[in-house]
Design a protein around this nucleic acid. Sequence first.
DNA 1: GCCGTTTTCGGCCCGACTGTTTTCAGTCG
Length: 580
Amino acid sequence: MTPPDKNTVVQVLRNLSLLLQLKGENAFKVRAYDTAADRLSGTPQDLATLVQEGRLQDLPGIGQGLAEKITELVTTGKLGFYEELKAEYPPGLMEMLQLPDVGPKKVIALWNELKVGSVAELELACRQGRVRELKGFGAKSEAKILEGIALHQRAQGKRKLLGDVLPTVEDLLTRLKAVPGVVRVSPAGSVRRRAETVGDVDLLASAPQAGPVLEALATSPGVAVVLGKGESKCSVRMVQEDLQVDLRVLPDEDFATALHHFTGSKAHHVRLRGLGQEKGLKISEWGVHRADGTKLPVPDEAALYRLLGMQYIPPELREDSGEIEAALEGHLPEDLVSMEDVLGVVHCHSTWSDGKHSLEEMARAAHAMGLQYLTVTEHSQTSVYAGGLKEDDLKRQWEEIDRVNEALPGFRLLKGIEVDILETGALDYSDHFLERLEVVIGSIHIRHSMNEDQMTRRLLNAMDRPGLNILGHPTGRLIHEREPYPVRMEEVLDKAAERGVVVEVNGKPARLDLKTEHVRQAVQRGVKLVVSADAHKKEDLHHLLFSVATARRGWARKGDILNTLPADRFVSTLKALRTT
DNA sequence: GCCGTTTTCGGCCCGACTGTTTTCAGTCG
């Protein structure tokens, strides 16, 4: 038996939380399971090791009870408590809980009274008008449930990619900022934390009068339906992506504490409330109060952290994965990489392979973003489907690169390649040829379905090849589309550290590969990284934003990111790092 | 179920909104 991996365990804990809700258990007990799931998925530590060494309880939020359950699950592959609970209810109830406006109480009522045990049965019962007969339900809730079912089926429960959502959010923010009287506007929630996927969007604004701001959202172009509108809140669903957007408007003096509250994460916020309590401070979305009820002024979030005697924690780090302890001790890095630090964009394609824009167009677009260089890294000859280049094609491309560089002073295209890592770990060109290039990214594009041993060996072998500078999108995942291929990332990162291979943090919204946890592991090993766009057209150059966000979430500092160096030093450092 | 310099019991966030109510329950964030 292969022991269940961390994701499976996390999922079981989340399911248990749902089942306990159905059972009508104490809400705090329910929350404890969710907290434990958060904690487990957030820790960079290996689950099997934690279990083996009996150190599960080192994670705050996991006590004796949960440690025993997790241990049982990991060591035996089954958890009796979970199996028993699951058997009490039809499996369809869990899916019903996912519907908007349908919670545990309603699900249980539907099951007990109508024997409705799945989303499909619920839809039928609504259409037959049986739901409105139940106490606490009416015609409106019946209609609302039907709407919710339709939405649920469209969205299939998928969270949206940050990259798909952010442009819509930016548009809305611009619109809200323009409303007369508005003082401050900000996204909150997972968008502000730059999580890789987003459920729905939280926006916050401060203004003396909420009405006009709420109205501005309700009447924004792209709004499909206004879900609700009160005196201080408004919820809408956008046409694009079925995205739900919630806006709250409040007086400016409450903005910072509300922003902090709604930015989360929940786990981070709960910890801070606890710290506040120790200092006799009650922290809520409405402000910071002393025990005697005095309200303390909190002009911005930095002031909030100062009140707690700790460093300011940027939103991207607020996951309760060690940032609170570090900030209390003053050890939180203050030079996390930012967009301003990045001088060149790595990993770009042009019309020479499968890109949409010419070298010159890509160069000018990057220059206009304030960047100093761009690495031209087309596909190599094996990637025929992507217009992969032969050695002779590349030599001709170098002539064009020289011409563009001459025509565009103050900017440099660097001569590179995204070379395929073949099945054995061999590269798609000779070592001799690769050495003539300034930047060599090695990536896997074919044969994804190898087992973990084979895939790990393949990557390790590739890193032994002297011509390789950068390991590209190391796990090959595509969010919602393709699982990462199985690979022992610790071994790969150890090898990168040993061999001086730089690792890519690919910024394409569906990739984000390395992902946050792996970035953190890389940084801990001293592995150098590049932030990249994986751009196939000019517009994709902005993917750098998502790469930088992922790097920040993984605690990467400016010094960890190689393309914060000017072009010459970027290239010379790439080469100098390599050990033979 | 977790946690503890108020430590093994008792607290753990609670307000806004909606719909079904006629004073409140359920859901959400």
